[in-house]
Simulated scan of single mutants.
Amino acid sequence: MQCDYFDSARCRSCTLMGVPYDEQLRRKDDAVRRALADVADHDAWSPPFASREAGFRNKAKLAVGGTISQPTLGIMDRQGTGIDLRGCGLYEAGLGAVLPRLGEFVTQAAIAPYHLGTRRGELKNLLVTHSPDGELMVRFVLRSQEAVSRIRKHLPDLRRGLPQLRVASANILPEHKAVLEGDLEIPLTDDESLPMRLDEVTLHLRPQSFFQTNTAVAEGLYAQAQQWCAEVDGTYIWDLYCGVGGFGLHLAATDRRVTGIETSPEAVASARLSAVDRPGRLEFFAQDAVAFARARKAPDLVVVNPPRRGIGDLTGWIEASSVATVLYSSCNAQSLAVDLSRMPSMRVTRARMFDMFPQTNHHEVLVLLQRR
């Protein structure tokens, strides 16, 4: 993949830009296998799951800089100057096509970009998600509610220009800190969730819920989970750190009971909405995963999809429990290796690297663990 932004040094976020994609895939697969060499035998590994090397991102997380008349949508440099990246080749075509109109809307609605140095202005970030059906969710991350009325006023015009816009909201982030969003979300449209239609499951994303950035690779990840779990016994499944319920919803079946646990109420609301048309007994709760596990009898199968730091204290519970099978999806092979070393009673029987983030060293790895 060739990128003018990288070649001109305006953006160096893609650390593997210029490296042939086959070589990127080989490097990442080798790195993950080395990280897990002490816990996963060579025979456990399947070939890496490849992605498109460009045009794969379903989500744009755009820092807004510049001025009302000339906003930039992209990243900030060290001086706090906005660098416009609306032409980034990583975005899905339908996502990249709408970014110029969103830049025009900033001017139309007179939303002053937030300036890091002076701490003045309103619009900090634009968060845009593109569904497989071509629909959009647009979130305006603002310093205060000052601009909300103007966004509402001009939103009908934006929707006429972008009829695929299904969900819009204003997120309020008053603090001056390096985070993408705040706690308060103000709906601006009647629809408050974006359907993400995968092979056989439609996930309903609410504004503050998480979904994988690469839709095609996420489909492959869930399909692999289905295949591996179909080969093991068990009718009661826990989906811990479940997010919007992607794994649990894909593992649901008429003879299975699935309980999903996630700390984010927004994600749980998304999962419950998605569960309406799925078979089996599905339930989702906003709770702490470790506290939930310690208070209940162990299920047949535990699925974990934690943040980068791993599952921590849950390893002790799993090691001491009667759980026969664990499916672990990780975005950090180093923390995964630490967690697996703390569960010596579990052995890795299947493993595969999924290239969720081409042009970078980031990865997703899925492992199936079974009690010795």
Score class of each variant (00 low, 15 high):
139 R>H: 11
359 Q>F: 05
116 L>Y: 13
118 T>S: 15
51 S>A: 04
2 Q>K: 14
171 N>W: 05
22 D>I: 12
1 M>T: 12
268 V>N: 08
235 T>R: 12
9 A>W: 13
356 M>T: 04
201 V>D: 08
17 M>Q: 15
302 V>P: 05
338 V>N: 00
253 A>T: 07
85 L>D: 10
59 K>G: 09
326 V>R: 07
187 P>A: 00
46 S>M: 14
36 L>I: 01
31 A>S: 00
121 G>M: 08
143 R>K: 15
14 C>E: 14
223 A>N: 08
332 N>K: 03
134 G>I: 02
118 T>R: 14
333 A>L: 04
155 L>H: 03
14 C>D: 14
135 E>N: 11
251 L>I: 07
267 A>L: 09
320 A>G: 10
350 R>I: 06
173 L>K: 13
201 V>T: 05
233 D>Y: 12
1 M>S: 14
209 S>E: 07
45 W>T: 08
64 V>T: 04
222 Y>E: 05
54 A>S: 13
167 V>F: 07
247 F>H: 08
293 A>E: 01
203 L>I: 09
111 I>F: 01
68 I>W: 13
255 D>F: 06
246 G>S: 02
67 T>V: 03
214 N>D: 13
227 Q>F: 10
269 A>K: 13
63 A>V: 09
69 S>L: 15
29 D>M: 06
108 Q>S: 12
365 V>R: 00
47 P>Q: 13
111 I>L: 10
208 Q>V: 05
35 A>S: 04
140 F>E: 05
313 D>C: 09
